[in-house]
Amino acid sequence: MSWLTMPRWPAITVGVAIGLLECLTFLLLDKPIGCSTAFTRTSGLIEKALRGNAAAEKPYYRLFPPVIDWEWVFVAGIPLGAFLAAFSSGTFRIEWVPSLWTAIFGTGISRRLGAALAGGFLVGLGSRWAGGCTSGHGISGCLQLALSSWLASAAFFAGGILSAILLFSLPGR
């Protein structure tokens, strides 16, 4: 069982297992794996709690009603699984600023949180705009050979590469 306590598994092993997990999800739930819809449902639930039922009447929330569906439960399972994986290898640690960020931009928490918040905003906006994220389009959609998913995935990485290279070559960082 020593493989269970290993901090890292080979990338291909993990990829093959995720591919099999997709097959299981199609079989059991008749839907592919996806993550970003759960964020729309959560934002709808929060808006509904803060502003009442009028918020739920927005056209987009009529398309994706603010309810806890099985896909939401799936996404809620992700941090639990990641916690178990990190705990099993002793790599769980509370960290505000990732080490690579610290090496380049310093240890300031507010700077890292500001960038993460801005980046998160664009990721949340863009994933809904494109109708999926790196799981729903990048893995689930590409494996179904959907044109929308191949195009969106190419755009995810084109934009991501551009953004990361620009960020890490900022003058006077």
């Binding site: 990732p98 960038a115 998160g120 906006l125 190419a154 755009a155 995810f156 953004s163 620009l166």
Partner: peptide, 13 residues
């Protein structure tokens, strides 16, 4: 949408 996602992807990590 994919490009907006990507710009955020690099910033958020």
């Amino acid at each position: 949408g994919g490009l907006i996602f990507g710009l955020g992807f690099g910033l958020l990590g």
